[in-house]
Each structure stands twice: as C-alpha cells, then as structure tokens.
Nucleic acid binder design. Sequence first.
DNA 1: AAATTAATCAACCGCCAGGCG
DNA 2: ACGCCTGGCGGTTGATTAATT
Length: 269
Amino acid sequence: MRCKTCEKPKVSYRKGLWSPDEDQKLRDYILKHGHGCWSTVSAKAGLQRNGKSCRLRWINYLRPGLKRGIFSAEEEETVIKLHAILGNKWSQIAMHLPGRTDNEVKNYWNSYLKKKVVKLEGSNSHASTTKSQDSANQSPEMRQISESLEPLEPPMQGSIDHDSFEGTQLPPFPKVLFADWLSMDHTTSQSLLNSNAGMNCQLDSNSNADVFQYGSFQVDDPPSSDFLHGFGDSSICGEFQLQFEHGGQILGGACYNYLSMDDNGVSFT
DNA sequence: AAATTAATCAACCGCCAGGCG
DNA sequence: ACGCCTGGCGGTTGATTAATT
C-alpha cells in the first residue's frame, strides 16, 4: 500500500544557479499575481523549481528594494551590536537593516565581521563583549543599545525617518529604488523600464526621495492582498506595501537604495 | 603564467512552528 | 488529536572570483 504522498507524481526540480530567464519568469509572475502559495508559484510561472527555491530567490535577489554592495560603516556597526544582543538571529538583525536580507547579513558576518570582532576582542580583551544568547541576561549597556534600536521593530510600520535611523545623517546623493533590480538585466534594463514591469522611477529632486509610479504597472486585477503579500512578507516591503496601498507611490522610506557601488563600478560614496 | 589558497556569495538542506482538514 | 503541508529560519555547502605564492 502506498501512502498519499508517494502517489504524488515525482517532480524533478531544477537546482543550482538561476538563469536570467528563470529570474524573469519569476519576477513577471509575482509582479502580476503575487506569490500566494509558493509551492504553486513555480508551476504557474513556468519554472521547474520548488517553492522554497522560488521563495528564496525572490527574497534574496529579486525582491524590490534590496540594497546590494558593500555594507556601510553604520550597517556594520548595527550588525555587530545586534549580533551581540541577539546572537545568530539573522532575520531579526536584517529587520534593522533596510534592504539587506538575512542571508546577506549572515554571509557578511561569517566571511568578514566575525573575524573583525574576534580581532577587536583580542586587542581589547578586557572589554566584556560576551555574546548573550538570552536577552534577559543583557547588560545594561546592551539593553540600552537594544532599546535604541527598537523603533524599527515591528519592521517598517510607517515611514522611516532617515535622520532618526541610528542617528545617521543621510548623504545627499540620490537614492535609487530598485536600482539593482533594474540593473540586473544589464543589457535590457532600459527596456525593462519602458515595457516589462511598466514602472517608472522618478527622482524627486525636491524631496531627495524616489517616487515610484505604478501608473503603467500592468496588473490584470487591482492589487489584491495576495499580490501585496508578495511584497509584504519582509521588513523592507512592509513599507512597500504601505505605500502601494496609499496611492501607489513610494516616498523616500524604507525602500530606499543607495547606489553605493554597482556592477559598473559607479560609486556615490 | 600557472598553481594554490582564501574569500565571497548564492543556493540547498534540515528542522521547526503554525495552519488546516 | 493527528498527520500533512507550507513557510520561515539558521547552518552549511559548493561554485566562483580574487589574492598570493
């Protein structure tokens, strides 16, 4: 006798790196319909990937508002502080870093920051930077740090006040929304702007904030909760959702994206 | 210039929790 | 109450790239 799951047709899913074509299919599908149930996304989008893989690809790479490139000093500091408080709670740490994914933070920590911290602790052996796994055991200093970071929790409910984030003065260079997304198709980014996603990115020079217009966003139906679910399942895109719901515009909120260093080597920093 | 080593990052794996029938 | 399914998370692996010998 075979169990129910055994009777399910075995689907051999593709593995490994995603091709630009697969990215395009997934992106197009989610923009049009939202992800809904991930396990059905791949089939509906015409992909031979499992749901988890699609979800991961969307969250870590295709999702709007992702910031890529090197971590700023402020971000680095935040990660170090939060890691001291939270331990390896990468998703929680990432909540405090708009545009960064847990995977990105984790990789950055493992490849670079961990060594840096060890080095620092080595040179400053008396500094009690014991990693507390339990917030109940937090030192007063750590609790203070924790509280100072609290405003971002829960993530992105309402607009972020740039000036209040970690007390960091934001540089006056232009912020680029979806910059990475658009630059992913190196050769077709322009056509993407004009046709595919149907989005127009305008730089509001007065407010120094990006305005993302969905005027020509081709959606079969009005944005459903399902559609928004695709954007709303992350700290970053709660803001995205919020703005989308209120007139389809994103002001310079959580979805900002500094183009600190892109593939072309353009640097504003 | 070639070989080796180190660093980086995308993606997979396994576990867990919550929802649902 | 139970089992199944799904989504989310953290750990780990493997491929690629950069640096060094």
